[in-house]
Write a protein that binds this DNA or RNA. Sequence first.
DNA 1: ACCTGAACACCGTTCAAGT
DNA 2: ACCTGAACACCGTTCAAGT
Lengths: 205, 205
Amino acid sequence: MPRTALTRDDVLDAAAALVRQLGPEALTMRKLAAELGTAVTSIYWHVGNRESLLDELVARTVREMGAIAPSGRSPVDRVLSIARAQRRMLRDRPHLIAMVHERGLTELMFLPAQQALVHELHDAGLRGARAAEALRAIEFHVIGFVLVERNRERSPAQSPAEQDLWDTATAGHDPALARALAAPPDPERLFTTTTRALVGSLLCV
Amino acid sequence: MPRTALTRDDVLDAAAALVRQLGPEALTMRKLAAELGTAVTSIYWHVGNRESLLDELVARTVREMGAIAPSGRSPVDRVLSIARAQRRMLRDRPHLIAMVHERGLTELMFLPAQQALVHELHDAGLRGARAAEALRAIEFHVIGFVLVERNRERSPAQSPAEQDLWDTATAGHDPALARALAAPPDPERLFTTTTRALVGSLLCV
DNA sequence: ACCTGAACACCGTTCAAGT
DNA sequence: ACCTGAACACCGTTCAAGT
């Protein structure tokens, strides 16, 4: 018997810590029970089963995801600030965000940020279908960028590193290109550049 | 004993079929053995273990991914055609591509397409670091888009559907926006729009 | 060289039994 | 209301033994 009665929140907190650090595949009911000092089956009484435990962690993540305050002078700058804030939030909770995504709750999670975006799009003079398309373009871009970024970070050492792939021969007599591709991309800079390019194009045409 | 001797390729073919349809988590050594009519342990003799089996499937995918022929008149159109071809390839092999990605072989897999892209960027007058940045921007965009797209397709029915989230109230007195967001996005159109916006912005500035 | 069954250490889950 | 151990049906993998 544990020192104090085991609560549902005890289980959720321990599970969240595990998932946040090591990902959902590291969460086994037996490990969790060992960490909590209870029998495996006690956990089932509190949270049903493994799947609904993960569901609850996802619900928490959606709830925690707060509103976003845009900053900057022009609509483009403010959209950019929202995109940057979204990127940071996504990067901070990679495993949990992936689980939110798998469960189809991404839209709900992003609703506050999207409403802020709509405000900026309206300010920039975009309305109706045009605003809707711009909104989705930005959303796809931000989420997609972070997904690619994370995939790159998680990857084991690239078997043929980009340096080796892009020697001067394959780069088509452009040694400066080969040099630029030899260094790993700076995601911060790349995100700003591409987001600005996309948003600028969407808002000004 | 099986009717004909079991070969390494038999194992790989059966495994590839399983993974292509149902994903890697559906590939259990016991199911595979049952399908091949052999003992589980025979598979180990041919392919080592489950992980190296999956590695070999990934290597096959990278090998199969052929070169890409750009089409179109302007550099922007040709870049767009490459992006579209990449998107189709990525969508056709979702599970295997994800595995390529996890193993850090995405760069290698995309090298032919990237070389085609560099050719177009050069034609458009971009060289050196500018060309490198444009190349990476396009790559992040295409891969990111498909990742988001697949995530949306795989998702179970969105718990609060976008229709419910975006009623006229939250849409900021823009009923046309609310209507546009009520329909699911048309990925084909969105991909073309956003890619053209990004590429146009990268090539013309 | 190739195949086999038995065994091991893991899973998630159910259930009857306890307090 | 809460907790328990035993049991079940799954995993991937190893290994000594067969041909």
